[in-house]
Each structure stands twice: as structure tokens, then as C-alpha cells.
Design a protein around this nucleic acid. Structure first.
Lengths: 129, 129
DNA sequence: GCTATAGTTAGCTTCATGGCTAACCAATCG
DNA sequence: CGATTGGTTAGCCATGAAGCTAACTATAGC
């Protein structure tokens, strides 16, 4: 769990940089060497390598060295972790809407019941737009 | 565009912290005061406020102060930016698969034709696996 | 009006990040 | 073999992030 969380930390942190996002995009189209990846960026190689390392540490990218060239490729399954988080968020959001709907229903019922008894002051609603 | 990019930077950076992710989750269920939000965390208020500020700067959260209590609520549309990025990524990915498929088709055709003629050296392709 | 509550401001540490240069392997290629 | 190419290591610097305490402001409640 704590590990899970720090994995997400790393993934999101990795994506919080335009260079690294661009690299991910690029790798999405197919594997490439470090040199090829670094080419579009105006940056010294060692600096660029740090980005590659960050991506690798996050699990988003995998690299292998053969001869003197290191080839990187995307690990699409790592992205699932992040997307899952959004999914989970969406679930909570939906639940919220459901709850709101349920709340409205409850209000309606109360109103009906009140109609039979006495027109009481509408309870001040709060907390959901 | 550059602005767009830095917005994404902020969003992903905001999500790259367990505390802030938890806050987002929490707010997803409904709005809450800073105090309520801070309660579960073992952290001084000023420290926590920084997180709230980060979330607000990223556009994920909106807060309003009324009286002495500041109420925060989620801005679901801000999340769309991040999800869109994944969407875009997915599109590139699909394109890649298509291209791969097309490539395989091309190979097949060449093979067939080669059966009639002779297997000529394939031009060295580069950059797309 | 005093006190407790809810945030806020200011200022300080510490550590991580993102960039650089310079020097250093280790494969290729001529 | 010697030079080039492709990465790597090491070390430096500036900035920013994440935490803290202490002191302050402003509302709410009694």
C-alpha cells in the first residue's frame, strides 16, 4: 500500500515534466536509443539521462544496453497505475452524484410527508452545489 | 501551448504527492473546510496549507473563504486536462499498432512479390521498430 | 469584551530536482 | 591501431519543495 502509493508518486512526478512527457509520447510510437530521444532537446546528455533515469525509476520506461547504444521502450502497463487512480476518483465522484440524487429523493419524500402534516421550513441544504 | 504544458506540469506535480491525492479524493466526495481536510494528516497547518495552495495553483481545487473558514471544492474539469493527455497517448499507441500491422502487411506483400522476382534488400527503416 | 477557533504570514531548515562541465569508458569504424 | 561515437560518472550550482515553529489576524461564541 505504502509502496503502491510511492509508485504513483513516481509516475505522476515523472509525468510532471514536459521533457519527460514528450519522451513518453515519443516512445509510445516505438522504441528509440537515448541519443535519438535526446536529439530534439536542447540539453546536455547527462542532464537528459537524468530524465531517462526518472522515467525508468517510475517504471514507465525500460531500457537495455546492447553494444554501446541503450535502447528505451515504453512499458504501457505502468501507465495503468495512473489511469486506475483516475478511475477510482471517477468512482468516488459517481458515488457522490448518486448520494446527491438519493439526498434529493429523501428531500422529496420529506416534503411529501410534510405536505400531509405541516409545511415546515426547508432545511438549509449544504455541501453539494 | 506552452501555457498548456505548464498547466499539465502543475496538475501532475500536484498529483505526485500522497497527501494531495488524498485531499483530491476526499474533495471528490464533497466540499470541505481546510480544517476538516487537514484533520487526518499528522502535519502542522501551515505545511498543510502549502498543499492546498499547490492544488489551487494547479486548478484542481477551488477555495472560498467565508467568515473565518475556507471551504474547498474540487474542480472536476481540471482533471480532464490530465485525462486528455492519457487519451492522446493512447491514440499514439493505437496508431503505432496500426502502423505495425500495416508494416506486417507490407512485408507480406513484398514476400509474395519476391516470390515472383527476387528478395531485394529492404531499405533501412529507422525509428519505428 | 474576552477567549477560543480557523487560517495566515514570516522565516527557517533540509533535501530533491534540473541543469551544467569535464573527464572517463567502451564499442565501432576506417 | 587510433579516432569517433554513444553513454556514463562525478561533482558543482541554483532553485524550489516540504516540513517546522512562532507570532499574528480575524471571526464566533459565551
Amino acid at each position: 500500500m505504502a509502496n503502491q502509493s510511492s509508485r504513483l508518486d513516481q509516475i505522476f512526478a515523472a509525468l510532471a515534466d514536459p521533457t519527460r512527457r514528450a519522451v513518453v509520447m515519443r516512445l509510445c510510437a516505438g522504441e528509440a536509443s537515448v541519443g535519438e530521444l535526446a536529439d530534439p532537446f536542447d540539453m546536455a546528455l547527462p542532464s537528459f539521462m537524468k530524465h531517462v533515469h526518472a522515467l525508468e525509476a517510475s517504471g514507465l520506461v525500460l531500457s537495455e544496453k546492447s553494444g554501446r547504444v541503450r535502447t528505451c521502450r515504453l512499458r504501457p502497463d505502468a501507465l495503468v497505475g495512473a489511469e486506475d487512480w483516475f478511475q477510482q476518483l471517477r468512482a468516488v465522484w459517481e458515488a457522490r452524484l448518486d448520494r446527491f440524487e438519493a439526498y434529493v429523493m429523501k428531500l422529496k419524500k420529506e416534503k411529501e410527508r410534510a405536505g400531509a402534516k405541516r409545511p415546515s421550513r426547508t432545511t438549509k441544504r449544504k455541501g453539494s452545489e
